[in-house]
């Protein structure tokens, strides 16, 4: 059963086409990732799905509720954590949580089991004002507040942006456990390496969806063989490779160069190329190149 159905959503801001014909489904209990760089349209899509803004055209339903007609009922069923930290900085951890519990017609005690694991880490700071928490702690508190009413669908807009790598890893662990409790989660992130933690992902750029599938299938669909090269001076190597006639594309990935060839087996002679598995980012770049 589809928990989320999106059909032909378009949104325009002045001259900018923010979203173009977005359609996809998210299944019940799925951890769905919306992967794309800043400005791809992720936040706009989230706001449309959480009934915060209206699309220009297209339809969508969340948990069987139309996002326009049934918006009041819809707001009871969803949990939303915006990209920017959006809790009251001058209220304490505890006060924020209690406030949001009340707002959602519930109490912290009632759904404590959902947030217990996360909240325990916050417990030592429960009288501290939210504005004085570290980035990772803020995200945990925001997640608690978005979860406290046991939403059936949870929308997390870039929850790991600006969070240290350890906290990011922890955060994904938490999402995995929430998924096990039956909550459908839609999460967006600009970090391609986080894509593999999702059940399925949609790659989005310039308001258009490039591909939707499991991370595994997206990687399998990579059309070419991918090679890795490296040198003490990657930049000069990059320059040199771009000149070679056999080379199709070269991109810098951290300390390596990722290289594809015009003909998969026709390697240039004097370069050490090592065959590797493509990552999501390789797929993303390839999809962009195809466009």
């Amino acid at each position: 059963m589809a928990k989320l159905e999106i059909d032909g959503i378009n949104k325009r801001y002045g001259d900018v086409q923010a979203l173009t014909n977005i359609s996809f489904r998210v299944n019940d209990g799925e951890l769905f990732g919306l992967i794309g760089p800043d400005g791809a349209g992720k936040t706009t899509l989230f706001r449309i799905l959480t009934s915060l803004i209206l699309a220009d055209s297209g339809e969508a339903s969340v948990d069987g509720l139309d996002i326009v007609k049934d918006y009041k009922e819809l707001r009871r069923h969803i949990g939303y954590m915006p990209g920017r930290f959006s809790l009251y900085q001058d209220l304490s951890v505890e006060e924020n949580l209690n406030f949001f519990a009340t707002v959602f017609h519930t109490t912290v005690q009632e759904n404590y089991h959902l947030i217990k694991e996360i909240y325990q880490q916050l417990e030592p700071f429960r009288t501290r004002r939210a504005g004085k928490l570290s980035g990772g702690m803020k995200q945990k508190l925001a997640l608690c507040c978005a979860l406290i009413h046991k939403p059936s669908v949870l929308f997390l807009d870039e929850p790991t942006t600006g969070v240290d790598p350890v906290s990011r890893k922890e955060f994904w662990e938490m999402l995995k456990r929430l998924k096990q409790q039956g909550i459908t989660i839609v999460v967006s992130t600009p970090y391609m390496d986080e894509a593999t933690r999702c059940d399925r992902i949609a790659l989005i750029q310039h308001g258009q969806i490039l591909s939707i599938d499991t991370p595994e299938n997206i990687r399998k669909a990579y059309p070419k063989k991918l090679y890795r090269a490296s040198a003490p001076d990657n930049f000069s190597l990059l320059e040199r490779l771009r000149e070679l006639p056999e080379i199709d594309s070269v991109f810098l990935f951290g300390e390596y160069l990722h290289v594809t060839l015009k003909k998969d087996d026709k390697k240039p002679k004097d370069v050490q190329l090592q065959l590797i598995e493509p990552g999501i980012e390789d797929c993303f770049i390839d999809l962009l190149r195809q466009k």
Binding site: R47, R75, Y80, S86, F100, F104
Partner: peptide
């Protein structure tokens, strides 16, 4: 401005 309105509007209040 602080974004809390976004959270509140997405709630049943």
């Amino acid at each position: 401005e602080s974004g809390t309105m976004e959270v509140l509007l997405a709630s049943p209040v």
